[in-house]
């Protein structure tokens, strides 16, 4: 027998980078990405529709419940209602819960788990690929929406700083939701169901209940990062007032960072310890 070789296991960081390399292309061109590209295309179509309608209107300003709103406010509303409350969590759920589950379902996990890398690196590398993939899906969509909606009743440059802040905020949201759902995927049975219940059941309900429970959501911290002044005297403003009174921006950022780090660490630990029994 050959004497033991003196190989050192590659570090988590190096292994993560290699799994990222391996996974990014797979993830970008997956059926899931194609399907979710349609989802993020929805707001662009809506924005295009609004632009056409507003161009046909003499005043050029769309109305929400009788109140005329400018492009910047409309953009802020779309960011909040479509991206923050729907698209970002949905992307987090669909990608995050499947980081390891896809490899298990496809039975390709064997090839990764029989290589000299820490198992947690498989999850971390795939998580990074998820971030790049979702950022590439979401951010262009937001930019398109901005350029379609912002000129309505205003100028493109006027609200540009908020666009930059929005892009940053959405990236932070994808980071936090992805980590939470990566943990759900690594730890729980039926992770997709759990993720959808969390996103469309737990978070909306808890956010309108007075008390501390709302701190057990991602949306609570994320909403504090929304930089927009919203239109008043409309149901949207009423809705947004319900969500107001959140933590400060630094507190939110620190909380979201803590959520992401802790969730990822737990997820990595679960993957390290868990057995994956593949159906023959």
């Amino acid at each position: 027998m050959t004497p033991p070789a003196t190989h050192a296991t590659p570090t988590v960081l190096a292994s993560t980078a290699r799994i990222f390399d391996l996974s990014l292309g797979q993830m970008l061109w997956s059926r899931r990405s194609v399907f979710l590209a349609f989802l993020v295309g929805g707001p662009v179509l809506l924005a295009a529709g609004i632009r056409v309608v507003s161009a046909a209107d003499r005043l050029g300003l769309p109305q929400i419940n009788g109140a005329r709103v400018g492009g910047a406010a409309l953009f802020g509303t779309m960011i909040w209602l479509l991206y923050v409350r729907v698209i970002v969590p949905v992307l987090g759920v669909f990608y995050g819960t499947s980081l390891v589950a896809d490899e298990v379902d496809d039975k390709t996990i064997t090839y990764l788990f029989t290589r000299p890398i820490p198992r947690a690196a498989v999850l971390f590398g795939k998580y990074l690929a998820y971030l790049v993939c979702t950022v590439l899906l979401v951010l262009p969509s937001v930019v398109f929406v901005y350029f379609l909606v912002a000129p309505i009743g205003g100028t493109i440059g006027e609200a540009f700083p908020t666009l930059v802040a929005d892009l940053g905020m959405l990236a932070v949201g994808l980071t936090a939701y992805g980590a939470v759902f990566a943990w759900v995927g690594a730890r729980m049975r039926r992770p997709l169901v759990v993720g959808l219940v969390f996103t469309f059941g737990w978070e909306p309900v808890v956010l309108v209940v007075p008390g501390y429970l709302k701190r057990l959501t991602v949306a609570y911290y994320l909403q504090a990062l929304v930089p927009h002044a919203m239109p008043r005297d409309s149901p949207v403003s009423v809705l947004l007032q319900v969500f107001s009174g959140g933590p400060s921006v630094p507190t939110s950022l620190a909380s979201l960072a803590a959520i992401a780090v802790v969730a990822l660490w737990w997820a990595g630990r679960s993957v390290e310890k868990q057995e994956y029994v593949l159906e023959q």
Binding site: H7, T9, Q26, D106, T110, T114, K273, Q280
Partner: peptide, 23 residues
């Protein structure tokens, strides 16, 4: 179990017909 360094010295050909088909 949980000793990845050993995989430097091992090669495994699994039974299942599973691949990254697009590569």
């Amino acid at each position: 179990w949980r000793n990845p360094a050993l995989y430097f010295r091992m090669g495994f050909c699994p039974e299942q017909d599973a691949f990254y088909e697009r590569m």
